[in-house]
Design a protein around this nucleic acid. Structure first.
Lengths: 243, 243
DNA sequence: CGGAATGTTGATATGCCTCAACTAAAGTGG
DNA sequence: CCACTTTAGTTGAGGCATATCAACATTCCG
């Protein structure tokens, strides 16, 4: 497994330009790591975290809990992502962060990131940009969940996950890991379990994709993109993948 | 009308602590202002803006355009807001920004904000925090539009608008400006115009609120909060309003 | 091998959409 | 200032997508 800082650096370099001194400063960041089982909470709504998380392995998610008890997943995070860079300047967390899968994360103290910031502004800007891309992904989720029928919504979501997995360098050709149950899928796109089940079957029948054993298989990228109206511009990567 | 920088300062102080030197540096930011008619675009999807916007007067919104031509509004912005602080580190805009109403905005060059940042990091952090709160509002919109029935969705949206108007000091007692047509409301919460019309009538009938002439009247805040499951924590204000 | 979690399927209900007609309000030009 | 036009909002009928409830099948896992 690569060193935690290299995972983060790779991710930041996907959208930002970093000089040698920046890389060095990032490599010097202190951290601890933590292993998680599926469904473990990393931080809970209302917590006041003093560290930020970098995902080293596995899948991690942010979520809200509705009064009814239903969960709404807000975003998924894979190797390289910083699911709560946001907490750097937000005292009290307005959402929870949990492991979807068996995962491993690095925890970097806020103080160290702030110090990095003073010392190497460019490195700080890269992390800021990371949070802004995060926000762009949220915007896209608003549109996706509010404006498209269920099949298209799922298609868009799958496109995004596959594209991001490729960008982070952890996709196999034509497939990537996506260990979500159909219940959880429903809590991502805002639909009930039976509806997800049926929509997934319809998607499978078209032959453009499949999801089984926690693995997403994309058989016909073009048609998925077409159906989901997926345009990766909002991910703001410097060298967009060809697919 | 107050000076543009004071409007921004007031807004930043709602969530951040700024020293005298920070305030002075913010006051020294160069800017131009621009008047807009309802529906004018400030920046369009795909643009590469070199300035950031501060709303001085009126209402401004961000939006996506779907393939069908339908618009999805992502957020509303009122006096004091920076609807595209995001663009500071994002080259190509993934959404448009338009005036909902007759509005006036100040444009601050990115370069000046970056310079502020080097000179007075605390002021830069305040703007960063502003973008993070923005992201928290997006998260809430995902949950609202994906997880609640239409009436509750509208109630939540109204609560947020009223609460933010109060926080920015531009609400009258029990009411604030909200110059959205029902079509636009539908494009905010992801619903059709007739459905919005009926849901609004139902809300009016309960007596808890009213919306006419571009003015939102909140008659029963408690019940609105209850119906919309509104909890202002996600707005991350230092001294939450009492309502 | 047995039990729990996950996924499938069917029946029924319903919230919201679409289409369409109509009404009301708000600008606009003579 | 009124007639005209345009835009915004209301209402109704009918249909469809998705929710809910419930039974059953399957897979996973200890």
């Amino acid at each position: 497994m690569p060193h935690p800082h290299d995972i983060l650096i790779r991710k930041l370099q996907a959208h930002s330009d970093l000089g040698g001194a920046d890389l060095k400063a990032i490599r010097a960041l202190p951290h601890t790591s933590r292993s998680l089982s599926a469904n473990d909470d990393i931080v809970r709504q209302g917590d006041r975290p003093t560290t930020s998380v970098v995902v080293l392995h596995g899948v991690v998610a942010r979520y809200h809990t509705l009064r009814s008890g239903r969960r709404q997943y807000l975003s998924l995070h894979i190797t390289g992502d910083m699911p709560d860079a946001q907490t750097l300047f937000i005292e009290r967390l307005d959402h929870g962060v949990c492991a979807i899968d068996k995962s491993e994360v690095a925890l970097i103290p806020h103080a160290a990131i702030l110090a990095l910031f003073q010392e190497r502004p460019a490195a700080g800007f890269a992390i800021w940009r990371e949070t802004l891309i995060d926000a762009a992904i949220f915007r896209e989720a608003i549109t996706n969940n509010s404006g498209r029928p269920l099949q298209a919504r799922l298609a868009h979501f799958f496109c995004e996950q596959y594209y991001r997995a490729r960008a982070n360098g952890i996709a196999k050709p034509g497939s990537c890991r996506l260990p979500l149950s159909q219940t959880q899928l429903g809590e991502v796109v805002g639909a009930s379990l039976p509806s997800v089940s049926r929509a997934l079957q319809a998607l499978r029948r078209t032959g453009m994709m499949d999801l089984r054993g926690g693995q997403l298989h994309v058989h016909d990228w073009r048609r998925m993109v077409e159906l989901g109206e997926f345009d990766p511009g909002y991910l703001h990567l410097r060298r967009p993948s060809r697919l």
